[in-house]
Design a protein around this nucleic acid. Structure first.
Ligand SMILES: [Zn+2]
Ligand SMILES: [Zn+2]
Ligand SMILES: [Zn+2]
Ligand SMILES: [Zn+2]
Lengths: 141, 141
DNA sequence: AAGCAGATGAGAATGATTCGCAAGTGAGAA
DNA sequence: TTCTCACTTGCGAATCATTCTCATCTGCTT
């Protein structure tokens, strides 16, 4: 249950937090903006403030429950931290986001950091391109 | 001369553009924010608007003269597009930025994009970590 | 049931970036 | 050189996303 997740990371179990966490878990869209979460909850009849959504997301992130991504040209999106680490490739035409994991790249990053005298703590890798015509759902031709 | 660069990319040669380009070329800091550029030019006695700086940077980027980077937790920074492509590693304590290029990673990205049915057009890779105590200039201990 | 630290909603405040517009200025034409 | 005009610029207003303020509310503990 989501209540457990919140308790486990030391967050008080409140209605707004539960609703946000539930939405993230049930949504078909893996990557959501604060606005989207706010809107969907509001449309669902919930009385919740945008500020609360931002606050909750920040806390969830700090607690390691979710991760934040900043794709260029778009707003910050959040996704549940489930399953193994992965990076993203974004279609610059339709916005579709695919995930991938590449051990070679992951290992290389660590080696590079070490070589440069850094203790690697995180990384952000996002590829940009156009998805194949068959799958691209871009608005204009 | 900078005038040439501007002409070559089809931009009219104007004082503001020349000043901004010159600053980018002469500055010891490779990565600068629009604000920094604006402030340094203003302190140098130039009469220039912040909006003009943003406009010029956007045009320079579109023309391929500079590249834009968005390191997490910081403002957008710009750097002259000179020399070969490279990615960055940023110290989360002192903010120091080092550059690196890794062929293995670059090649891998292309393969991944292809496998996923994307035509790769760009990518953003930034590593985060702490640089060695000897070189880190973090404010607090 | 009572008490309190922490949480929330609403709206104001921020900070970065973009817009709108009247005035200014390159660069080719005359 | 001067004329023209589309392109530029400075300035302030406007946006947009995100954060802050604060009075009110709500989970837990006792
Ligand atoms: Zn993802
Ligand atoms: Zn697409
Ligand atoms: Zn660089
Ligand atoms: Zn450092």
């Amino acid at each position: 249950m989501e209540s457990e997740e919140l308790r486990n990371v030391g967050l008080k179990v409140t209605t707004p937090r539960l609703k946000i966490l539930s939405l993230l878990e049930s949504s078909k869209a893996k990557h959501m903006t604060a606005e989207t979460i706010y809107r969907q909850l509001s449309e669902g009849g919930e009385v919740i403030g945008l500020a609360t959504v931002y606050r909750a997301l920040a806390q969830f992130e700090a607690a390691g429950l979710i991760t934040r991504h900043q794709f260029e040209g778009g707003q910050t999106v959040f996704e549940l931290e489930r399953g193994p680490h992965h990076d993203h490739i974004v279609c610059v035409r339709c916005g579709r986001v695919e995930e991938f994991y590449d051990k070679v790249i992951e290992d290389r990053q660590r080696e590079i950091a070490e070589k440069l005298g850094f203790t690697l703590s995180d990384h952000a890798l996002t590829l940009y391109g156009e998805c194949s015509n068959g799958t691209c759902t871009a608005k204009n031709g």
